[in-house]
Deep mutational scan, measured.
Amino acid sequence: KDKDLLKGLDQEQANEVIAVLQMHNIEANKIDSGKLGYSITVAEPDFTAAVYWIK
């Protein structure tokens, strides 16, 4: 199951987060929520590491 990592990002921010996570071998998903911006989700086992790397 995926957990929400970040919400309300613009496309550039979302792409930067995806890139950082991929560099650390964390699979992440970018979801277009329309006017609400983009959300990033990661698998539950990767959540703690993902939070660490996006600081």
Rank of each mutant, 00 (worst) to 15 (best):
V51S: 09
T48E: 15
V17F: 10
E16M: 14
K30D: 01
E16W: 15
L36M: 11
D2I: 13
T41K: 07
L6C: 13
L6T: 04
L6F: 11
G8S: 05
L36S: 10
T41C: 06
L5E: 03
G34I: 03
I31C: 06
Y38V: 05
G37W: 07
M23Q: 09
A14G: 01
T48K: 11
E12R: 11
H24T: 02
Q13F: 07
P45Y: 14
T41Y: 09
N29M: 11
N25E: 05
K35L: 12
I26G: 04
S39R: 13
A28T: 04
S33D: 15
D32V: 06
S39H: 09
G34D: 04
N29G: 06
M23C: 10
V20A: 06
E44S: 08
H24P: 00
V17M: 08
A28K: 01
F47W: 12
I40Y: 00
D10E: 06
Q11Y: 12
S33E: 15
K3N: 05
T41P: 00
K55V: 14
W53V: 13
L21Y: 00
E44R: 06
K30H: 03
D4T: 15
D46K: 04
P45D: 15
V42Y: 02
L36V: 06
H24V: 04
M23I: 08
L36Y: 13
D2R: 15
A49S: 08
D32P: 08
Y52P: 01
E44F: 08
E16C: 15
I18D: 00
D2Y: 15
Q13C: 13
G37D: 03
E16I: 13
A14L: 04
Q22G: 05
T41I: 10
D10H: 07
V51G: 04
L21H: 00
T48H: 12
N29T: 13
K35T: 12
V20Y: 15
A43L: 06
G34R: 02
E44K: 06
K7F: 12
Q13E: 10
I26Y: 03
Q13T: 13
E12V: 09
D10V: 04
H24N: 05
F47D: 00
Q11G: 07
D4V: 15
D10M: 07
L9E: 02
E27Y: 14
V51H: 08
N29V: 11
F47T: 02
K30G: 04
E27R: 14
L9K: 01
L21I: 03
K30M: 14
A43S: 10
D2V: 13
K35Y: 12
E12F: 12
L6V: 10
N15P: 01
N29W: 12
L5W: 03
V17I: 14
P45E: 14
E12H: 12
E16F: 14
I31R: 05
G37R: 05
E27M: 15
P45R: 15
N15E: 11
A19R: 14
S33V: 11
K7Y: 11
K30Y: 07
K35Q: 11
T48I: 12
I54W: 09
G37K: 07
E27N: 14
N15W: 07
L36A: 12
Q13V: 07
I26A: 02
S39A: 08
L9Y: 03
D2G: 11
L9N: 01
V51F: 08
A49I: 10
V20W: 15
A28E: 00
W53N: 01
D10A: 07
K30W: 08
E12Q: 12
E27K: 15
K35W: 10
D32S: 08
M23Y: 10
S33N: 15
L21D: 00
A19M: 11
A19W: 12
L6E: 03
V17D: 00
V17L: 10
K1V: 09
D32A: 07
S39F: 09
D46P: 00
I40E: 00
D4F: 15
M23A: 13
L9W: 01
A14C: 05
I54H: 03
G8M: 05
Q13G: 06
